[in-house]
Design a protein around this nucleic acid. Structure first.
Length: 506
DNA sequence: CGCTTTTGACCCGCGC
DNA sequence: GCGCGGGTCAAAAGCG
């Protein structure tokens, strides 16, 4: 998890927060999109959510890895260029002050690392408990009826989900995802093949893991000869979607996939038109997405995904796909056993008390889980250390970096009927499976903040002093020509080993 | 010229 | 049956 958190890279917005002035001292890619942008059309085109080649390396890591006061050139951010300049100016007092600050930051980094290690251990323990309990539940034929019926709602009617996560069987996919997360946490993730998915589902119930993945109920529902009335009665939710709410001035967020617009409609109750896109990365890809601005807040862009990709996704697309699919899986699995999840969550130790809430509606023909990246119920967000030297982070970076991973999910997650409105519908807390997709959701949360890049730049410049180095953002297309002093962000956004945009348990 | 976007028409499900 | 709204189609227009 250390690597995952450190590598929480992601995401920068091509179009920065419109409410923030373009940085002057700190030069970022955002500068390209200032009003004097020579290519204004491009600049406001899209908010790049999960650009795969965007990297972010925590300065703490730099400090730890290099005590000489020089940053790793491969990282590209010369955080300590001031040392030489200060020395050349003979300002030894300032140098000493900076060195003291450096030591203090190193100590802080060590503390945080220790905290992170502890969290990682607890997380792994929790995963183990969760998997164990899930195995027991699947192996237990005396499962309560309501639980079994819930499971049947979402079991796969088709042989296999084509791309990655078996969103039609979230328990199975979650188990797999968690297994792989445990075993390959720090390794690069390769794209799964659809053949792999098929093999998984077609394998006999041999070992314990597969027994847990393929329950007798699963096998029953996979056979089309099941009574139609049974299916219709047991599957009230014919389609599910994942909606992402993000604040952006751009007409569309860039999620790494290629989309072609095929329609636009005026939706009732919203003065903003709804645009319809289909994935064009592969012929016949069934994935659709709708993009519409929120009626209440036009700065909020609502992107709704539907369907499974039938092709492999580029790295830049897997983060969003994993996020949405994980959210969908969480939603489905949680809706299966909301009571159990709530009971379980209440038993979690404080760091793992699931922070995410889900609202469910049994009447929705198209239940939608909404990743709301526009608000933070835990506001105001503060860093763990109040007397911190990164004021820009506390003001512009809406992520609670308390060190407790669960709190990173401060943004609410909703499951609603198609319209992403949040009335006072009953909600349940998410179960421990949240942890499996924590990183993806966190990445989305960070991505949601269009001011993240500028905040990062401001924070760094605040640490090292203005003008020490130019801080640039990376161009998702790699065309910006990263200077040596640039902030480099690790591209391997942590992701689930599988990826698909979302799911359709039809 | 090929691809994408636009936009009116059409289809379908649902409620009355 | 009718109207409404959501979703899709497909011809025309735009663009590089």
């Amino acid at each position: 998890m250390d690597g995952q958190l450190r590598d929480l890279g992601f995401l920068h917005s091509r179009r920065d927060d419109p409410h923030q002035p373009c940085p002057s001292e700190v030069t970022t890619e955002v500068d390209k999109h200032c009003p004097d942008d020579p290519n204004p059309k491009r600049s406001i085109k899209e908010l790049d959510f999960f650009s795969g080649d965007v990297k972010f390396v925590s300065h703490g890591r730099d400090l730890e890895s290099d005590d000489t006061g020089r940053s790793d050139p491969s990282i590209g951010l010369n955080l300590f260029a001031l040392d030489s300049t200060a020395s050349s100016n003979g300002d030894t007092a300032e140098v000493k002050m900076l060195q003291g600050e450096l030591r203090r930051l190193q100590e802080e980094n060590g503390k945080l690392k220790g905290m992170l290690d502890q969290i990682t251990k607890n997380y792994n323990n929790l995963q183990g408990h969760l998997l164990l309990s899930m195995h027991k539940q699947h192996a237990n034929p005396d499962l309560p009826d309501h639980r079994q019926k819930h499971e049947m709602h979402y079991l796969p009617p088709s042989p296999a989900a084509p791309a990655g996560i078996d969103v039609n069987n979230p328990i199975k996919s979650n188990i797999k995802a968690e297994d792989e997360l445990v075993s390959q946490r720090a390794t690069s993730i390769t794209e799964p093949t659809s053949e792999g998915s098929e093999q998984e589902q077609q394998q006999p119930q041999g070992d314990c893991e597969q027994t847990s993945r393929v329950s007798p109920k699963t096998a029953k529902l996979e056979h089309p000869e099941s009574k139609p009335e049974d299916q219709s009665a047991e599957m009230p939710l014919r389609k599910a979607r994942v909606s992402v709410r993000a604040r952006s001035e751009a007409p569309m967020i860039s999620d790494g996939c290629q989309w072609r617009k095929y329609g636009q409609k005026m939706a009732k109750g919203n003065p903003c038109p709804r645009a319809y896109y289909r994935c064009t990365m592969a012929v016949g890809c069934p994935v659709r997405k709708q993009v519409q601005r929120c009626a209440e807040d036009k700065t909020v862009l609502i992107t709704t995904y539907e369907g499974n990709h039938n092709h492999l996704l580029p790295p830049s697309a897997t983060a969003m796909a994993s996020t949405t699919s994980a959210a969908a899986a969480m939603f489905l699995s949680n809706s299966m056993a909301s009571k159990e999840a709530q009971a379980a969550s209440n038993g979690f130790p404080p760091p793992y008390r699931p922070p995410t809430i889900v609202t469910l509606s049994a009447s929705a023909p198209f239940p939608t889980i909404t990743l709301d990246l526009t608000q933070n119920p835990n506001s105001p967000i503060q860093l763990a250390r109040p007397a911190q030297p990164y004021p820009a982070f506390t003001t512009a970076f809406p992520l609670p970096l308390h060190g407790y991973t669960s709190q990173m999910l401060g943004h609410a997650m909703y499951a609603t009927p198609a319209a992403p409105k949040f009335p006072g519908t009953p909600f349940v807390t998410m179960g421990g499976r949240d942890a499996a997709s924590l990183v993806e959701t966190v990445s989305a949360v960070i991505a949601s903040d269009p001011g993240f890049t500028s905040a990062l730049a401001a924070a760094i410049s605040n640490v090292i002093g203005a003008g020490a180095s130019q801080v640039r953002n990376t161009d998702p297309n790699g065309s910006s020509g990263l200077p040596s002093g640039a902030v480099t962000v690790i591209p391997d956004t942590p992701q689930l080993p599988q990826s698909c945009t979302t799911f359709s348990p039809t």
